[in-house]
Design a protein around this nucleic acid. Structure first.
Lengths: 361, 361
DNA sequence: TCTGGTTATGGAAGCGTTTCCAAGCACCCC
DNA sequence: GGGGTGCTTGGAAACGCTTCCATAACCAGA
């Protein structure tokens, strides 16, 4: 016996066939006499035998591994807090089930190449993390029949892919309504990255609510961002030098809100005394910031956990009909929003009227 | 042909043997006539053939996969910024070489079980991320002959494991010397997690430099932390209610420095006007904080990159003699440290004297 | 003694590749 | 025309495991 011990080595030492060893080591020891079981166990123990998972995968046609694929656009993990939280959720579900994780970070946008890396027999299924519009990850149907679950992107139906995500629409609706209930009628918005569905869903929800409440949308207060903190800072630049200001600025995520806040500090504009700010995501960044951000919390860990669960279900039952799960976010009120009622009376709530600068105390 | 096409299917369609197909698809087409090559290529193309990497691994006895193992003590990815940065470096090196990554996050501390998960034939080598003292990951020699590289822990020689890390000693030495050069003689310290080698190395460097410069170490200013921001805040609690205060507090990492700073803000103690603070790591958290932290920057991405490189070298040459690479950190001066010369004259530099509260301007 | 039903074990065919080696063939030179 | 020499191609044995199915032994009942 050279190299690592194999089933054959154990069988030889125990004086039986490899079938016997295989069966016993897989827990089918009720088929055998007790002394046989003992012998095999001892032989395996003594040799330090460890089953070769590659050979096992080949024979079983199951790898007990799932892939986690990042979008080529965001294949860096650094600063991708979303991916971490989701990964932890996935791990939490998979660990006790003895599944392993293969990390897939394609750097090309050629879908054929991407899927060659993903679907090469080495995984049983894949979690696609936050694919953006036009992502090669979404070409799934054309290249692979592997079970797949998308997280972090609420896709249009036609993609026919299972996905799990926060309910962006309902969460943003809740947040905007709350802001309006604080009396704000002059509301700015910083949009997310235009390739993300979530950016559109959040913006649309924002617009809908304002419309519904009859609050006018001032397009000069609606700024393009890209979910990065710098874009929030740039938005602050652009916005804060306008002659008329909103009383509150809603950013499509926390990172941009943080960038916005930084810039406010630089420009010595007090939050929330002079302007209110909201975020979205409740990223842990915000938590550590000096100014506690009012935002939407959603359970990314839970998203990962459910995704893994859903994926394993698909793998084990073969039922790959697309399922959609949307998780509700929670409103987290901290202190980055001031009530506008100091100026606007509650009575104005239904027949809104812009009171620019009105929240200044 | 049911299921995914195999080498056999391609061979049948091209009218040749599987050996031929295998050779051609692996790039050994110079062995064959051009029309044969063409036929095979076309057949493979038409069937959408993709080699099964599991079968390939079994046959080649190489998996083209490396494992990345987290310490069971820190198996969560969330908040483990170090792991992310290192992972990115590893990915950067591995991607172009067509290696994949398997994420291993053991939750037990039983070394046999941990290594059963790690060394089961599914990887060619493993990067062990920041194992702490007593970690099952360090029982490597007893359980596995897999090539392994440790990052994030500068181990004592006797572990006989290759490792790549920042040079904690030289970096902390540099930082402390700089602080002393700013005129500080009353220096506090917040220690890192006692199970991390880095914590001891940094503390030892701190003590050595103070000794060398004849600056007295006041043990009531040396506080135990655990690398978490909360422990930094607790340290601030403890320290700041003492009657005599140091002029500067050096935290063993940025996270604790940030916690300390938060607490200072709460207690309305101005940094650096009333007390100076340093960190270590230059984590991206610090960057986004309001108060720019003077700290040590080290290139975690680079650590990952070099670790992957070193590991591949071991795998490919079979040379697993332990190598140690220490990377120099860089001093990053921002504005969390005030000069103590406002009170202490430069002349006092060599025969230091505590000037508690002396940095107040 | 024969049949049939247990119970305990092993044979052997896969799983989809890789790779060593041999074989077939044409050609050329002496 | 025999024997080398290239050039193409294929056979077959691995790799280490799973699993279907056969076999052998034993015992009970007829």
């Amino acid at each position: 016996m050279r190299g690592k011990p194999t089933l054959r080595d154990v069988a030889e030492r125990a004086g039986c066939s490899i079938t016997t060893v295989s069966n016993i080591l897989q827990g089918r020891s009720h088929l055998y006499r007790e002394d046989m079981v003992h012998q095999v166990m001892r032989a395996a123990q003594e040799l330090g035998y460890r089953p070769n998972s590659i050979a096992r995968s080949l024979a079983r046609r199951r790898t007990a591994t799932i892939g986690v694929a990042l979008d080529p656009q965001h294949a860096r993990l650094t600063h991708n807090l979303y991916a971490h939280d989701v990964l932890d959720g996935i791990l939490a579900f998979l660990e006790p089930r003895d599944y392993d994780i293969r990390l897939i970070t394609p750097r090309t946008s050629d879908p054929a190449a991407v899927w060659r890396r993903i679907d090469n027999g080495s995984i049983d299924g894949v979690v696609l993390i936050a694919p953006v519009m036009g992502s090669p990850l979404l070409e799934w149907r054309h290249y692979s029949s592997l079970p797949a679950v998308v997280v972090g992107s609420t896709l249009p139906e036609e993609y026919r892919l299972s996905h799990i995500d926060i309910d962006n629409t309902s969460a943003m609706t809740m947040l905007v309504e709350w802001v309006i209930q604080q009396g704000h009628r002059a509301i700015g918005y910083i949009k997310g990255h235009p390739l993300h569905w979530s950016a559109h869903q959040r913006e649309q929800a924002f617009r809908r609510v304002l419309e519904r409440y009859g609050v006018p949308i001032r397009e000069e207060w609606v700024l393009q961002g890209d979910y990065g903190p710098e874009s929030g800072a740039r938005a602050a630049e652009q916005l804060l030098r306008q002659s008329e200001l909103p009383t509150v600025v809603m950013a499509a995520n926390d990172d941009m809100a943080i960038g916005f806040l930084q810039q406010c500090r630089t420009l010595e504009i007090a939050v929330p005394d002079q302007i209110s700010v909201t975020g979205f995501d409740d990223s842990s960044w915000a938590e550590r910031m000096g100014i506690p951000l009012t935002t939407i919390r959603h359970d990314r860990y839970q998203v990962g956990y459910l995704a893994a669960q859903q994926l394993l279900h698909q793998i084990e039952t073969g039922d790959t009909r697309p399922q959609r799960v949307l998780i509700n976010g929670a409103l987290v009120v901290r202190h980055s929003v001031a009530s506008a009622y100091a100026l606007a009376s509650p009575a104005t709530l239904q027949h809104a009227f812009s009171t620019e600068g009105g929240s200044k105390q």
